[in-house]
Write a protein that binds this DNA or RNA. Structure first.
Lengths: 257, 257
DNA sequence: CGATCGTTTGAGTTTGATCAAATGTGGTGG
DNA sequence: CCACCACATTTGATCAAACTCAAACGATCG
C-alpha cells in the first residue's frame, strides 16, 4: 500500500515533490530549481531489497548515500552474544548512510523490514554538493541533526521510561513521522514489525512486549494486528508515553492532527 | 588539572593546535592555514560556567555554536515528572549546539558538570563557513556524525546491556575519548560525577549505581573516588562492557594504549 | 558546628526476564 | 481442500535484576 500511494503522487505532482528526498529536504529549506535538478541527477541506480535483507552491513565501505524511496528499514547493532538493538527506523526520504564522511566503514547495519526500494547517491555527488550548493549541504546536514534529535529521545525512552511508556512513545513517534509523509490513514499506519522486533527496539523481551501490547489494547489506546497499528486515542497515547512532538521539529503544516 | 594542561599546551605549541576545536576537526581533515584562521577569527566571546550551571536550556533560541574549551558538560533531558536522562558528555573540543540549523529552539539542555570554559561562534560565522569553506564544513558535519555514532552506542548500552556492563562500557568510552585529548594520566582520568549523575546516565537508580561500582571495584577493574576514575585492568573492563572502540572512529595515532 | 549533600547498607517490593508449552496463522505442496 | 511446517503470539510459572524506602554514616562548607 505504500507503493500505491507513491505512484499516486508521481502521477499527480511534479517530479520534484515526488522525490522523497527532495520532499524531506524541503521541510528545512526551499531548494532552488537547480538544486532539485542536482539531486535528481545525482540519484543513481535503484535497488530493491526483500524483507529481512541487509541494505548495508557493519564493516561495509561507505560508497555513497542510499535514500529510502519506499518501504521501511531499520538501523541495528548486534552484540557478540547475539543481543540486538534497533537504533532507528528509516522511512521514505530517510538516508541510510550520511556517514560517507565518517571513517570508511559502517559501525552498524541496516536491514529492510519490508520490501524496500532504495536509490543511491554517490559519494562523489555528495562531495560535489558540499562544494557547489551550500544551501543543499545545509539541508542534508539538517537531516543528520534531525536523526540526532530522534536518537536523543530514544535515549530518554530506554533510560527513563517503563516498558509501557516506551511502547506508547514509539507508537506516537511513528504516527507523526509517517503522518508527515502521508502514510497515516484512518488513524492507522503500517508497522511491519514482529513482537521480537519491537522488543529489540524497546529493550524488553518478546514476552513482555506481548503483555505490554495487551495492556495498551485493553485500555483502548491502540490495536496492533498483522502489521497494522491503529491509534484509537492519540491524546491518551501521548500522555501515556510522556510524548511531546517538539523533538521531531515538524513544520506547522505537518502538525495538525 | 584540566586547565593547567591546556595552559601547558598553549605555551609549547602553535595557536592552531592549542584551539581545542581545531584539534578536534584535525582528526578528520587537514585544515588549511586559511581555514584555521577563519575558525580562530570566528571564535568570539568566552564564557565561564560554574559546576551545575546550565550552559544552554531547553527552549533557548540557538544563537551560535558554543565550543567547550575546558571542563566537562553534559546534555540532558528532563521528563515532566522529574526523571532525568543524560544524553552525552561534552569534553574540550566538543560543540554544544551544532543545532543552529535545526529549528530555532533547543530541545534539550546542557549543564556544566565542572567549571567549564566555553567559546561562542556566531550563527553567522557558521553560515559563512558553509558558504566559503567546504572542507571546513565537512569537518564540522563530521563532528555531528561522530556524536551520532556515540549516541548509537549509548542506545545499545541502555537497551541491551546490564547495569554492570553499561557502567564498564561508559568508563571505557570516557577513557578513550579523554585519552585522545591527553586527559588520561596514570590510567586515571577526572570524571566529576556523583553517583546520582551516573544513575541518570546509565538509566539505573543511585542505590544500584553504588552497588555496581562496588562490584567493579571488588573485581579489581576500577576505582572511583572523589571524581577520579582509575582503570586497573583495561582489557578486563572492555570485555566486561562488551566494548569495541571502533564506533569512536579514533585515528590510529590515538589508538595506542 | 549545624546543615547539606553524597555515599553506603539493609529489607522488602516490583518489573521484567527466562523457560516452557499451548495456541494461532499464513504459506506450501500433495 | 487438507496436512503440514515455520513462525508468531499468547499464557503460565518461576526467578533475577533493579527499584524503593528508610536510615545511618561521612564529607564539606559557610
Amino acid at each position: 500500500m505504500a507503493s500505491s500511494s507513491v505512484a499516486a503522487r508521481q502521477e499527480g505532482q511534479s517530479q520534484e515533490l515526488a522525490h522523497p528526498l527532495i520532499r524531506k529536504l524541503s521541510n528545512f529549506t526551499v531548494l532552488s530549481r537547480e538544486e532539485c535538478a542536482a539531486v535528481i541527477k545525482a540519484t543513481g541506480k535503484m535497488f530493491d531489497f526483500r524483507t529481512g535483507d541487509d541494505i548495508v552491513q557493519r564493516g561495509d565501505l561507505t560508497g555513497g548515500v542510499q535514500v529510502v524511496l519506499e518501504g521501511i528499514a531499520c538501523r541495528y547493532k548486534i552484540l557478540e552474544d547475539g543481543r540486538r538493538q534497533v537504533l532507528a527506523y528509516l522511512i521514505p526520504g530517510d538516508m541510510c548512510d550520511l556517514h560517507v564522511f565518517l571513517l570508511n566503514r559502517m559501525d552498524h547495519s541496516i536491514a529492510a523490514i519490508t520490501r524496500t526500494k532504495v536509490a543511491v547517491i554517490s559519494r562523489a555527488s555528495v562531495l560535489a554538493f558540499t562544494d557547489q550548493y551550500p544551501n543543499l549541504t545545509r539541508a542534508l546536514w539538517w537531516c543528520t541533526l534531525l536523526d540526532e534529535a530522534i536518537m536523543r529521545e530514544w535515549l530518554v525512552n530506554l533510560g527513563q521510561r517503563t516498558a509501557y511508556e516506551r511502547m506508547a512513545h514509539l507508537f506516537c513517534e511513528m504516527y507523526y513521522r509517517l503522518g508527515a509523509i502521508g502514510e497515516v490513514r484512518d488513524r492507522s499506519y503500517v508497522l511491519p514489525l514482529t513482537q521480537t522486533g519491537l522488543g529489540d527496539t524497546l529493550g524488553i523481551s518478546t514476552v513482555h512486549v506481548n503483555r505490554t501490547l495487551q495492556d495498551l489494547r485493553e485500555r483502548g489506546l491502540i490495536t496492533f494486528r498483522s502489521g497494522l497499528l491503529t491509534v484509537h486515542d492519540l491524546p491518551a497515547l501521548e500522555s501515556a508515553g510522556f510524548f511531546n512532538r517538539d523533538y521531531l521539529h515538524l513544520r506547522d503544516r505537518d502538525q495538525k492532527d
